[in-house]
Design a protein around this nucleic acid. Structure first.
Lengths: 141, 141
DNA sequence: CTTAATTAATTTGCATGCAAAACAATAACG
DNA sequence: CGTTATTGTTTTGCATGCAAATTAATTAAG
């Protein structure tokens, strides 16, 4: 083998790519019941924790692409999950507010984490925790 | 906090999502020199290892979506990286063959793994290996 | 042998991820 | 105070990821 590093089986990145796609795919079915896509679900989680933040803050918390966020928020506004209002102090900023429907969806979403866990019953809690710590290192770089 | 599991900071999935996007983003610049996208690079790696496989085998090796693969292979054919021929034994199948340009690109790609490693110099070799093993577990489920 | 599954690929429609360009509003600076 | 740089957001164009429908070719059943 001329370039062993160019083998797929030696690639950390390819494993991350597969794992990320795979897990997000697992969310698809539970999220369909809430009429949410995965990035929309991330936005909802960020807002359930911090309602009333600006779009820039939301981008920072979620790591979602700015260009995509505009579209995502538009669709979520259409679904009456949230509304976007201008910041009076700084008119460049726009503030996101959860609507009643969006706030209540939190209760319907409460069982999703457990559903996902079932898909990974073959991993121990400890392994999951270890994985989280390593991924945090990756995300620091 | 009503539903602690619904916090972003407790989500394995969100970390995987960020890490995957982040690493693939790191590949963008080196791959631009080869005029390849990341999925196209995965296809090239699979073919450098196993030239002459069918599309179905390529899908299995790469975990790339079938619908996307058709488009990816079309673009790679246009770039003279590879060609697609019918399998005479089973006319449903199509066989992928590297063209000269595609085969030679391997040498130009030889330094990419090292370039990527530099972006993750803050991680030890051991941590990377540990991460790979845990991701393999995720990808088994 | 003819029809009903099954497999290999492609096509289609929708939702991002990403880079670059475009805008508006505010902050910095001379 | 007016020009410039910076920040917040949107727009645009391209490349997927994914599900579902479609088509072509092969195999299985009766």
């Amino acid at each position: 083998m001329e370039y062993p590093q160019l083998k797929l089986e030696n690639q950390l990145c390819h494993r991350l790519y597969m794992a990320s796609n795979r897990i997000i795919r697992n969310y698809r079915e539970p999220l369909e019941l809430l009429d949410l896509t995965y990035p929309q679900y991330i936005v909802m989680m960020a807002l359930w924790e911090n309602d009333g933040i600006s779009i820039a803050e939301l981008l920072e918390k979620t790591s979602i692409d700015g260009g995509a966020m505009t579209q995502i928020l538009k669709k979520m506004t259409d679904k009456s999950l949230l509304s976007i209002v201008k910041d009076e102090d700084d008119k460049r900023k726009r503030i996101i507010k959860l609507e009643t429907h969006g706030a209540e969806l939190r209760h319907k979403a409460a069982d999703i984490p457990d559903k996902i866990k079932c898909s990974f019953a073959h991993m121990t809690e400890q392994e999951a925790q270890q994985l989280i710590e390593l991924l945090d290192k990756v995300n620091q770089g």
